[in-house]
Design a binder for these strands. Sequence first.
DNA 1: CATGAATGAGGATTCATTCAT
DNA 2: AATGAATGAATCCTCATTCAT
Lengths: 197, 197, 197, 197
Amino acid sequence: MAPLNEEQLIQIRDERREQILAAALRVFSRRGVVGTKMSMIVKEAGISHGLVYHYFKSKEELFVTLVKGAIDGAQEALSFFTSLPGTAYDKIRRFVEEMIDEKGAPYFRLIYQARTSDGVPEEAKRLLDQYTLDDYIEVLKPLFEEGQRDGTIAPGDPGELIAGFLTVLTGVTVVGSVDERQFRIPNIEMLMKMISK
Amino acid sequence: MAPLNEEQLIQIRDERREQILAAALRVFSRRGVVGTKMSMIVKEAGISHGLVYHYFKSKEELFVTLVKGAIDGAQEALSFFTSLPGTAYDKIRRFVEEMIDEKGAPYFRLIYQARTSDGVPEEAKRLLDQYTLDDYIEVLKPLFEEGQRDGTIAPGDPGELIAGFLTVLTGVTVVGSVDERQFRIPNIEMLMKMISK
Amino acid sequence: MAPLNEEQLIQIRDERREQILAAALRVFSRRGVVGTKMSMIVKEAGISHGLVYHYFKSKEELFVTLVKGAIDGAQEALSFFTSLPGTAYDKIRRFVEEMIDEKGAPYFRLIYQARTSDGVPEEAKRLLDQYTLDDYIEVLKPLFEEGQRDGTIAPGDPGELIAGFLTVLTGVTVVGSVDERQFRIPNIEMLMKMISK
Amino acid sequence: MAPLNEEQLIQIRDERREQILAAALRVFSRRGVVGTKMSMIVKEAGISHGLVYHYFKSKEELFVTLVKGAIDGAQEALSFFTSLPGTAYDKIRRFVEEMIDEKGAPYFRLIYQARTSDGVPEEAKRLLDQYTLDDYIEVLKPLFEEGQRDGTIAPGDPGELIAGFLTVLTGVTVVGSVDERQFRIPNIEMLMKMISK
DNA sequence: CATGAATGAGGATTCATTCAT
DNA sequence: AATGAATGAATCCTCATTCAT
C-alpha cells in the first residue's frame, strides 16, 4: 500500500502513453480518423475509456501526436538511409524495403489517412502541409542523381521520378493493409524496376 | 390536369437515380462509408434529404449498389480491353490508362473503400469476395502470357506479376485522389516499366 | 373526352370519399392513430397519396371524421335497439350481437383507439368527451331496469352493470381483432350471463 | 481514488436496468411500440438519451425484453395460483383479481400491444407464438374441470370457457387503462358470473 | 379529379467526452 | 492513476404533407 515514488509514476505514465499511442496507430492507420472509434482504441490498448483522456485531451490530439511522430519518423528514415554506406541504388532499395514492411507501413498509411480523411484536425493538416512531397524530393534527389550518373537509375527528371515512385510506394502500403486475397504487395525487384535503367 | 404519363415518370426516376448514384460515388470514393454523411451526398446531388430514401432504402443500399456497379464495370473494362485489336502490350497499356484516368479511378477507389471501411454492409463484402484478385488474374493471364511470348512483358510467374501490378494500380488510384502537392500519379511509361521486359 | 357533368362529379366525389373513409376505418381501428401511416390507408384504398389530400385536409381530419361517424353510429344503434319490439333482454342481446360482429366492431375499436392513442387530435377528444359512458348508461338504463323488473337481468345498480358490461364488450371487440390463435371472442350466451339473473 | 468495485458496479447496473425496464413498461403498455418515443421512456426514467443504449441495444430489444418478462410472469402467475390451497373457484377468483389489478394489468396490456402493434420485432412475435391461448388453456383446464365437478363452474367445453374468459379479462385490462369516465372495469363478481354455474 | 416525386420536421441511434468514485 | 456509467450533440432515417404536371 506504499505509494509509488515519483520515478515509478513517471515510468508508468510513459508506458501507458506509448501503449495508447501504439494501439491508436494500429487502428487509425487502417481505418482513418472518422472510421476509428475511441472504443476501438480503448479495446486495442486494453484499458478503460476514461484513461485515454488522462493522457490525451481528445481523439484529435491523439491523432495529431501520431502524425507528428510519423513525419519525424519519415524524415529520420530518409536521413538514415541516405547516410548509409553503399551505392545509391542499394540505399534506395533498403529505403523501399523499410517502407513497405510491417513496421514502417503504418506510418505511411497514417500520413495518407491524415491527408485524405475528413475529420482530420487543422493542426495535423498544417503539420503535413509543411512537409510536402517536394521536401521528400529534395532529400532524395541527390541519391537519385547519383544513381542516374552511375547508370543504375532511369534517366529523366529526378523530381518526377521520385514523386511518382513515392506515390506508388504509399499507394501499395495503403492498399496492402487489406486482406491478401484482394491485394498483393509486389516484391521489391518489381517495384525497383519502375525507377531502374 | 392529367398526371405525368408512365414514360415521363420512368425517365424522371432514372435520371434522379443516376444523379444520386453519381453524387454518392464521388463522396463515397473519397471518404469511405463512415466518413460519408448523407448530408454530403444530398448536397452534392442538390436534392432533399428525404428523396434519397425514395430511391434507396438506406445509405447501405446506396453503397452496395455502387459496389455492384463497380465490380460489373471492372469486369466489363477487362473484357473490353482484352478484346481490342493490337498487341498484348498495347491492350494492357490502354487498360492502365483507363484505370488511372478521371473516369475510372473512382470505381477502384470505391472497391478499396469497400474492402477497408468498417461500416461496410455484409452484402457488399460478399460481392467483393466473389471477385477476388484471382479472378482478375485469370482474365489477364492470357494477355500477359502473350506479351511474355512476344518479348514485351517481363518473364516470371504471370500471376505474381498481375497481382502486384493491379495492387500498384489500385494503390496509385487511391492515394492519387488527394491533392497534387502530396501525391503525384506517375506517368504510364513509368508504371509499365514494372511489367516490361 | 366530354367533361363530366356536375352530378357525375359529385357522385365520383362521394364514392371516393366513402372509399377512403372505409379504408381508413379498417386501418385506424386496428392500428390506432400513430400506428397508421398514410401509406397504409392509401394502399388499402388503392389510390394515390395526393388524392387523400383532395378529400381530407390531413390524417387528423380523416380520423376525426371517422370518430364523428362512429359516435353517431353508436348513438343510432342504441336508439335502434331500444326501439325494437320484444323483451328488454332480447333487445340487449341483439345489441350485443351487433356490437361484436364484423360490421359493428370496427367502430367500437375506433372509439377505443380514439380514447387511448396519443396522436389523437384535440377535436376528436372533445367529441368523445361529450359522449361519455354516462350518456350510454342513460340510454340503456330504462332497458336494464325493465329487465330487472321482469327478472331477466341481474339486480343491483343498473349504472354499474351497464358500465362494466360496455367495458367488457369494448374490450372483447378490441382484443378480438387480433388473430384467432391468441384471443377468442366468447359466445353471446357467455357474455349475457354477466348481466343475467 | 480507486474505481468502484465490481459489486457496486453490478448493483448500479442492475438498478438502472430495472429502472429503465419499469419506465419502458409503463409507456409501452399504454402506447404500443410505434406510439412510444424513446424520449418518453427517457423522461419517465429520468435519465439521458444515451444511457438507454448503454443497457439495451435498441427500442426493439427493450420491448422484447419486456415481452419475455411478461410471458414468464404470466406463466408463473398461473402456476402460482393453481398451486394455491382452496377450492378451484377460489383459485380462479384470485387469479382474476391479480390479472386486473394495478400491478398485473400492464403485463397483459403489453402482450396485447405486442400482438397488435406493427413495429413489433420478429423475435417478440416468435416468443408470443410459442405461448398461444392453447397453452394457457392447458394449464387452467384441470382447475376448471374441478370446478365443474364440484358444481361451481358452468358446464360445457372447458376449453371454450377458458378461451372466452381470458379474452374478456385481457380486453378489460386493455381498455380499462384509459380514463374512468370512459370505461369502468366490472367488479370481480360480475366477471366471475360469466363462468359460474 | 388524379398522380407520385419531392420536401423537411421529428424520432432513433451512435459515439466522443465527462465525472463520481 | 484508473474505471466505466452517464451525457448530449450529431447523424441516419421515416413519414405527413405539398406541388408540378
